[in-house]
Amino acid sequence: MVQQIEQRHLDFVKDARKTFEENSEMHTYRNGTHDDNDTLIALRYGMDRDCILVYELGECVANFVQQTRPVPNPRNEVMKFAFEMEKQLSANEHKGGWKRDHHQDLTGFLLLNLEKLRHELIKIPPNRDKQEITKRCANIANFAMMVTDNEGNNNES
C-alpha cells in the first residue's frame, strides 16, 4: 500500500539519487545505519536502473521513475567476461599498470594475443584448450581497454 509522500521522503530520494549517481554499482541506499534514523530504504531498479523505489519499514512509499542516468545492467555473458578480464589484470598487477605504455606497445601485445588465440582456434575442437582461449580473449579485451583508457574518450587529459 502506498502512503502519503512527505518532504522527508523527497529529501531521501534526492540523497539516494546523488549516491546512485556517484556509484553506478550501488543498488541499495539507506538513510541510517542500524539506529532510529534507519527507517527508509531506496532500491535502484528498472531496465536502465534509473528508477528509485522507496520503502519505509517494509512499506512502499512511492515509485520515483527515471530519477538517475540510465545505467543498463550488463548481460550475464558480459559480466562473466568482465570477471575474466579482471582475473587477467590481477594476474599481471606486478607489471605496474598501463598508463605510461605507448599505444604501439599495447596494440602489439593485443596482436600477439590475437595470434596465440588464432593458433589455439585452428586446432581440432577436442584438442583446443578452452582456458587458453578464454585467457587470450580476456587479454585482447584488456589491451583494447588500455588503449581506450590512454587514448580514447575516457582519457581525462
Rank of each mutant, 00 (worst) to 15 (best):
L89C: 11
L89R: 00
L89E: 11
S90Y: 07
S90V: 06
S90E: 11
S90R: 15
S90T: 12
A91Y: 07
A91I: 12
A91P: 02
A91N: 06
N92L: 02
N92A: 11
E93H: 15
E93I: 03
E93W: 13
E93P: 03
E93G: 04
E93C: 00
H94K: 14
H94Q: 02
H94F: 14
H94E: 03
H94M: 15
H94Y: 04
K95R: 08
K95F: 11
K95M: 01
K95P: 01
K95W: 09
G96T: 05
G96I: 00
G96F: 04
G96P: 10
G96H: 14
G97V: 13
G97Y: 14
G97A: 06
G97Q: 10
G97C: 11
W98E: 05
W98A: 02
W98I: 14
W98D: 04
K99T: 15
K99D: 02
R100H: 12
R100M: 12
D101Y: 15
D101G: 12
H102L: 15
H102I: 13
H102P: 09
H102C: 11
H103T: 02
H103A: 08
H103N: 14
H103D: 09
Q104P: 01
Q104W: 06
Q104N: 06
D105P: 05
D105H: 09
D105N: 12
L106P: 04
L106T: 05
L106R: 04
L106H: 05
L106N: 04
T107M: 08
G108P: 07
F109R: 10
F109H: 10
F109P: 02
F109W: 04
F109T: 05
L110Q: 14
L110I: 02
L110K: 13
L110T: 09
L111V: 07
L111H: 02
L112F: 07
N113M: 06
L114E: 09
L114I: 01
E115Y: 05
E115N: 03
E115I: 15
E115P: 00
K116N: 13
L117G: 03
L117M: 08
R118M: 12
R118S: 09
H119I: 13
H119S: 04
H119E: 11
H119K: 11
H119R: 14
H119A: 08
H119Y: 05
E120P: 01
E120D: 07
L121I: 08
I122K: 14
I122P: 00
K123Y: 05
K123R: 09
K123D: 05
P125A: 05
P125C: 08
P125L: 08
P126N: 02
P126W: 02
P126R: 00
P126Q: 01
P126D: 09
P126C: 05
N127P: 11
R128A: 05
D129M: 03
D129V: 02
D129S: 10
D129Q: 15
K130L: 12
Q131T: 00
Q131F: 15
Q131L: 13
E132Y: 01
